[in-house]
């Protein structure tokens, strides 16, 4: 899992939501929290440590 992968509580998520600039109702926050926690669970499959050379490809095309 990535380093920021610890699942936030609903209160922590609500605090974070205020920083996003989004206009969210309490219902929105509940749904998004559920979706985010689910996504974090899936992201546990993403390795946390990478070799320095494992740079992300910016372009990856048919002529690569």
């Amino acid at each position: 899992m990535t380093s920021s992968g610890k699942a936030p509580t609903l209160d922590e998520f609500r605090a974070r939501a205020t920083l996003t600039g989004l206009t969210l109702t309490e219902e929105d926050i509940g749904h998004l929290h559920k979706g985010y926690v689910g996504l974090l669970g899936l992201m546990e499959r993403i390795p946390q440590r990478w070799a320095w050379a494992a740079e992300p490809p910016l372009v990856f095309r048919a002529d690569e």
């Binding site: 990535t2 920021s4 992968g5 992201m43 993403i46 946390q48 990478w50 494992a54 740079e55 992300p56």
Partner: peptide, 11 residues
């Protein structure tokens, strides 16, 4: 960091 990790995983 999560986005970049996903790009790295894609590579």
């Amino acid at each position: 960091e999560q986005y970049i990790s996903a790009l790295r995983l894609r590579r």
